[in-house]
Amino acid sequence: MPRREGGTFNAASMADIAFLLLIFFLVATTMDIDTGLSRKLPPMPDPNAQQDNKQIKERNVFVVLINAQDQLMVEGKPLDIRRLRDEAKEFIANPNNLSNLPEKELREVPYFGEYMVPKGIISLQNDRGTSYGMYIKVQNELAAAYNELRDELAMSKFGKRYEHLISEQQDAVKDIYPQIISEAEPKNIGGN
């Protein structure tokens, strides 16, 4: 027989009810944090606007092509993906001021004063048959090249890693190494 003393009720099943609710929430929700590579697409060209024939010098463009067999061609030569990062860094920074790598432009940058800012851009083109995994690998390597350069610059100037800088300093570093990856209109050669 249950004892009843001054209006207390049996709270033993409370735990079961709470468990049921808990299990419901465990099943119905997700906790995974979405991570990924953020990019900005170029806006659609205005059909009425006049063709802008601004030529970019060949030395300022780093051409990366991926074919339908997931092979890489960089600046006209086949390249292994593992070397892409270093090649890209070499191109973007042009540390030895070589004449076949991008030009630099003297510009006023906060914190740095007058600074020779390289003008290189990366052009990425893939085939419709390229696998998405390969595409992401290339995007990742190019992003890594920029991130490493920014880190190095932040280290030498502020003695801190890029991510630990205050946002004004980050903007200044970004001014010097803006991440410009231009994607050409896709082409279909390898079938599929």
Binding site: T35, L37, K40, R128, Y132, I136
Partner: peptide, 29 residues
């Protein structure tokens, strides 16, 4: 996007997003 997808369909999607003026994208990895 699944790793083994070909870029063709991804490119089509990106073109549609450009037309829809939804330019901020994130490749989930």
């Amino acid at each position: 996007v699944d790793e083994n997808t070909r870029m063709g369909v991804v490119t089509d999607v990106k073109q549609e997003l450009r037309k829809a003026n939804a330019l901020k994208i994130n490749y989930s990895t």
